[in-house]
């Protein structure tokens, strides 16, 4: 685990404010290193999926996983950020989330090529060894070639 990158953390916080839906969910940057990003989704009644159990909706958990994975892609490249929209994302739900408890998500971009970045993410409450969900995704860089200086 590399040391915390304050500049990257500030970048994530700043970026989140622009992403309307994530800002509305109150998704917060907890930590950022060049290896992984941790975001928090605060518990809210508004995003509950099952009113009987109080568990958060899969869609809200999915959004947290997507957001964290997306940030993990540029954490690798910071400060040379390149936009990479989600190509696909798959999430497995291990258990329902607990009423009133905030969710954390840690994501890592474990490999990237000129075109594609590959991510893994874990959603958990207090204990990462008792996860709520796992997600794997791939992201595609908008410009295909890393170094475009030869074009000019």
């Amino acid at each position: 685990m590399r040391e915390s990158n304050d500049e990257l953390k500030a970048f994530c916080r700043h970026g989140m404010a622009d992403i309307k839906h994530s800002a509305l969910l109150g998704i917060e940057t907890i930590s950022a290193t060049n290896e992984s990003i941790t975001l928090k989704l605060p518990y809210s009644q508004k995003i509950v999926g099952d009113i009987e159990t109080g568990a958060l909706h899969g869609g809200a958990i999915f959004t947290l996983a997507d957001q964290t994975s997306g940030f993990a892609v540029f954490s690798h490249l910071h400060p040379k950020i390149r936009i990479a929209p989600t190509l696909d994302l798959r999430i497995d739900h291990m258990r329902k989330s607990t009423r009133g408890v905030d969710l954390l998500c840690v994501a890592r971009c474990y490999r990237y090529t000129d075109n594609i970045a590959f991510t893994r993410a874990v959603v958990y409450e207090n204990d990462i060894d008792d996860p709520v969900a796992h997600a794997v995704g791939s992201f595609m860089f908008l410009e295909a070639v890393k170094d475009q200086s030869w074009l000019k």
Binding site: D18, I19, T63
Partner: peptide, 17 residues
């Protein structure tokens, strides 16, 4: 429900949800 502020585009997470 927007994600990308410049396009603007719907947040991928919202589409999933």
């Amino acid at each position: 429900n927007l994600g990308n502020p410049t396009l603007p585009a719907i947040h991928g997470g919202v589409l999933g949800g």
